[in-house]
Design a protein around this nucleic acid. Structure first.
Lengths: 302, 302
DNA sequence: TTCAAGACTGCAAACAGTTGCACTAAACCT
DNA sequence: AGGTTTAGTGCAACTGTTTGCAGTCTTGAA
């Protein structure tokens, strides 16, 4: 039994001949090590948790897929959960996961740093898109992307730009704001907070029109798409009357008309990296680069 | 120890006083029963697997969320995995899950019935959107919805209608086709198979134009949206030149312009039901109703 | 008072692996 | 040849829970 065990978990400690013998017999019997039993002795479940704000937001699926693939590669399984944008659900889910995963990656959390630091004591943790001491962190440098976006608008000649911001509690949203405010020669009007969805953008259209801006940076592509719809309903067309820049570079932004100018986010890389950090239990802060993708939703003001 | 165990798993077998004593002490110590150890003796992991074709397809998230909620309610956890539309990945994932879940729900599978029946021998199983003997089945009556859709087009005066079908191996796609063919007074042109995505619809636009139809039923809303874009690129507008009906009733179909006429699918109900069937280990076949939602992408032919 | 029944409780053996330690046998030194 | 290392193997204890069975303690009836 111990030899069988070693054949699977420490192959170099067993004679090559014995090993192949064990393996053939195991094959015949269809034997697979039982993970529950293994978890009992080793204390590691080989499961990970991934908590996102909303699976339905197309920003997350690429991240989830990448995380999933990275986990499977290392023989881990991934629980994915969804907080429906409820900060309270984050804590509850971490609690629920804590005893049956080896760690959790928390993506774009909405809770306070305080609350997160408390949770980090219960489970190994990596956070995506939030700066947090005491936990490994993967950041996407959305600030840089936002600056590029506003500079792009400024370069086209826009002098008044609206920032249609995201939900309260979002690190990303405040990063965007800070960066956007620093672009010289542009007057920034902040409109928000808004739900990070098409509905959120749609609902903000009136305020954007009233603000009299000629350019808009939206919290994400979904908001941008909703906003473009909403502006259309108000008789304003994009990019002729208003230029709109999104963030995330989701697939449907590449297909909608007008094709969205947006900031591409390295979501897949972030998901993969987060899982790697978690499994290797390294505590590091990584910042991934973003870039501006210019398409058809921006033009000089008329 | 046994008393502690019973306090948690069979409370009625232990004296009320002892029970409260155990519970208070457990509370003090922050004790929680260890699921791995429990799984070892009981043989039940209290985990379920959910396999979908593509998390990024907005059809699935509501189903996933509902399944997740139903599982959590019964103190189960849910592994979600994604096959990237690869039939082979279905088998592989079921294998990978089999030893650490109590069952898996397989949603809109692309594998053959043969292959699925083979897999059903390894793990308790419920299939969504596929008729399969030997496994519990949750069906959405998409055939009925498709018939309503084509009848709606016929009612508007369309005589030649294209069916932009879905991927090979999809039960849903063949149901749609069978139902659509049965509507009297309409000549049906089948175009496909196509990828069930916006790209798939976009790519089919040329063939739709060449087919000379005035109405289209698309495999799903994503395909419909892509198709509308593609037709637009060819100078055809919807619904003036061509009427388009989608299937699924995803959120972005309600916001895109024109707002999509579509068949609403009971995805959340299906997810919830599938999990319930799995946990209760009942083997049943259920068919859920669909309905037609008429919006702005259909009009009489000109 | 004694017994039987019934309600709790706790011992100990699973469950399926991992791991420290002791043991054997072969190979290597001197 | 005798002693020492080294590689490979197997025993047995341990992980935390469930569960059959036996034991204890009450309680009520005879």
């Amino acid at each position: 039994m111990s030899t069988v065990s070693r054949t699977f978990s420490a192959p170099h400690m067993v004679n090559a001949a014995t090993r192949t013998r064990v393996l053939t017999v195991a094959e015949e019997l269809g034997y697979r090590p039982n993970r529950a039993a293994r978890a009992l002795t080793t204390g590691r479940t080989h499961n990970l948790g991934l908590i996102v704000a909303d699976i339905a937001n197309p920003f997350f699926p690429p991240l989830i897929k990448a995380a999933h693939a990275a986990a499977r590669q290392r023989d881990y399984h991934l629980f994915v959960a969804d907080t429906d944008e409820e900060p309270a659900a984050e804590e509850e889910l971490v609690q629920a996961f804590s005893k049956q995963v080896d760690g959790v990656v928390l993506c774009s959390p909405r809770s306070s740093n305080k609350a997160l630091e408390r949770l980090a004591e219960r489970v190994p943790f990596v956070v995506i898109n939030r700066r947090l001491r005491g936990a490994a962190t993967v950041l996407m440098d959305v600030g840089h992307g936002a600056r590029l976006a506003v500079e792009h608008l400024a370069g086209l000649g826009h002098r008044r730009v609206a920032l249609v911001s995201g939900p309260a509690g979002s690190w990303t949203s405040s990063e965007i704001r800070t960066a956007a405010e620093q672009v010289p020669g542009v007057e920034l009007v902040v409109i928000g907070p808004n739900a990070p969805t098409e509905r959120g953008g749609l609902a903000a259209a009136g305020r954007v029109r009233d603000s009299g801006v000629t350019g808009v940076l939206a919290y994400n592509d979904l908001v941008a798409i909703g906003l473009i719809e909403g502006l259309g309903d108000l008789g304003l067309s994009v990019p002729q009357d208003v230029s709109v820049v999104g963030i995330d570079d989701i697939v449907s932004g590449r297909l909608n008309r007008p094709k969205l100018t947006t900031v591409a986010m390295p979501t897949a890389a972030a998901g993969r990296l987060a899982v790697d950090l978690l499994i290797q239990e390294v505590s590091a802060t990584t910042s991934l680069e973003t870039r501006l993708v210019v398409r058809d939703s921006t033009a000089p003001p008329r």
